[in-house]
Amino acid sequence: MRYLPALIVDAVLVLVFAAIGRASHQEDPAGFLLTAWPFLVALLVGYAVALLLPARPRRPWSLAWGAVVWVVTVAGGMLLRVLSGDTAEVPFIVVASIVLGLFLVGWRGLAALVRRLRASSDRSSASAPQTRPSAAAFPAAVPEPGAAATRAPEASAADDPAEAPESRDPDPA
């Protein structure tokens, strides 16, 4: 099952390749499956070849795996196109090789770059000294629980009825 996510990404990219090719020639984009099927079959064969190689690449997201799948997909797709009565002219072979190479090997290269950057940032953060700020660096905005209860309330003029403004009458008459 570890091969399935990479296979799905590859299959989607082959479908995108076929849809772009159909649209660039003002052909019906809905017929992209007619263009894609030989390459999809060859893609499955490419996965089988990568699995069966004696010194095979072990991970389907590795660059070596992508290179094997790319070569088999292009060669097998062209062969199936010719055997099914379609054409495989030199410009199409060149464009298909370049685009499928960028797609099938390219996403693996980006994934390797992301993994490498993530690993180097993990190593640098692990080697950096971990310091925690002291509690004094962040003064408490709210008093600690119970602190307000222990403090004596301050007296104010409003607390003394004799000093309250309502109890004084400025005009005693």
Rank of each mutant, 00 (worst) to 15 (best):
L15A: 15
L15Q: 09
L15W: 11
F17K: 13
F17V: 12
A19G: 10
A19V: 13
R22E: 06
A23E: 06
A23M: 12
A23Y: 03
S24Q: 13
S24G: 11
S24E: 13
S24M: 15
H25A: 01
D28S: 14
A30W: 15
G31A: 12
G31H: 10
L34P: 00
L34G: 15
T35I: 00
A36C: 08
P38K: 14
P38S: 11
L40D: 07
L40I: 13
L40G: 04
V41D: 01
L43Q: 09
L44R: 02
V45Q: 04
Y47S: 00
Y47M: 14
V49Q: 09
A50E: 00
L52E: 06
L53A: 14
P54N: 12
P54T: 11
A55E: 13
A55K: 12
A55L: 13
R56Q: 11
R56Y: 06
P57C: 10
P60V: 01
W61D: 15
W65I: 01
W65V: 01
G66S: 07
A67N: 01
V68T: 15
V68F: 07
V68C: 05
V69E: 03
V69L: 03
V69D: 12
V71P: 05
V71W: 07
V72F: 10
T73C: 06
T73N: 08
V74F: 04
A75P: 01
A75Y: 06
A75M: 09
G77L: 05
M78G: 04
L79K: 08
L80G: 02
R81F: 06
V82I: 15
V82A: 13
L83E: 06
S84P: 00
G85W: 07
D86S: 01
D86E: 14
D86T: 01
T87D: 15
E89I: 13
E89Q: 13
V90R: 10
P91L: 05
P91W: 06
F92T: 02
F92A: 10
F92I: 02
I93E: 01
I93K: 06
V94G: 02
V94T: 11
A96L: 03
A96D: 02
S97D: 00
S97F: 05
S97R: 03
S97E: 02
V99M: 13
V99C: 06
G101Y: 05
G101S: 08
L102G: 15
L102M: 06
L102E: 01
F103V: 01
L104S: 05
V105N: 06
W107I: 10
G109Q: 05
L110A: 15
L110R: 12
V114E: 02
R115E: 08
R115V: 00
R118G: 07
S121V: 00
S121H: 11
D122F: 02
A126T: 11
